[in-house]
C-alpha cells in the first residue's frame, strides 16, 4: 500500500548535495561564511579539552592559577587562544545570522550579502578589541 503510493510520486525531488571541496574558489561570500561557521565549530570542538584543561588549572589552587597565567603568557598559546577567540566570535555572529534567516529575516540576496559582511566585520573587530584588551 505505502510502496504503491511512493512509486506514484517518483521522480522525487531531493535536497541537492553540493561538495564544498569541489565548489572551491567559486564559493560566494555567504557560502564562505557558512563553511567558516563549520570550520570554527570543528576547531572549537577539537580544542575543547585544551580549554577545559586551562579552566581546570585556573580554578584548582593559587599555585595552579600562577601556572595557568604562565601557560597563557606563552606566545604560541596566546596565538592559539586568539584563534579560538575568533572562532567563538565568528560562530556566535554567523549563528545569530542563521537564526535570523530561520525566522525569515534578511532572506533576500542583497540583504543576505550585506549581513554576511556585517558578520565578518563585527567578529573580526570584536576579536581585535578583546584580543588587545586581554594582552
Amino acid at each position: 500500500m505505502t510502496e504503491a503510493t511512493l512509486d506514484k510520486q517518483a521522480p522525487r525531488l531531493r535536497p541537492k548535495y553540493l561538495n564544498v571541496f569541489e565548489l572551491g574558489a567559486r564559493l560566494p561570500l555567504p557560502g564562505f561564511l557558512s563553511i567558516l561557521h563549520r570550520v570554527s565549530g570543528a576547531g572549537l570542538f577539537l580544542l575543547l579539552p585544551f580549554l577545559l584543561c586551562l579552566l581546570d588549572l585556573s580554578l584548582t589552587s593559587p599555585a595552579a592559577f600562577d601556572d595557568f597565567k604562565d601557560v597563557v603568557a606563552n606566545p604560541l598559546c596566546k596565538l592559539l587562544l586568539l584563534g579560538l577567540l575568533w572562532a567563538y566570535l565568528h560562530h556566535f555572529c554567523a549563528g545569530i545570522r542563521f537564526l535570523l534567516l530561520d525566522v525569515h529575516v534578511g532572506v533576500d540576496l542583497p540583504k543576505a550579502r550585506r549581513s554576511t559582511v556585517v558578520v565578518f566585520v563585527v567578529s573580526l573587530a570584536l576579536t581585535l578589541i578583546i584580543g588587545v584588551k586581554l594582552w
Binding site: R38, G41, A42, F45
Partner: peptide, 9 residues
C-alpha cells in the same frame, strides 16, 4: 550542540 554539529560534519 557540539554533538549535533560534529555529527552533521
Amino acid at each position: 550542540h557540539a554533538w549535533i554539529g560534529v555529527r552533521d560534519i
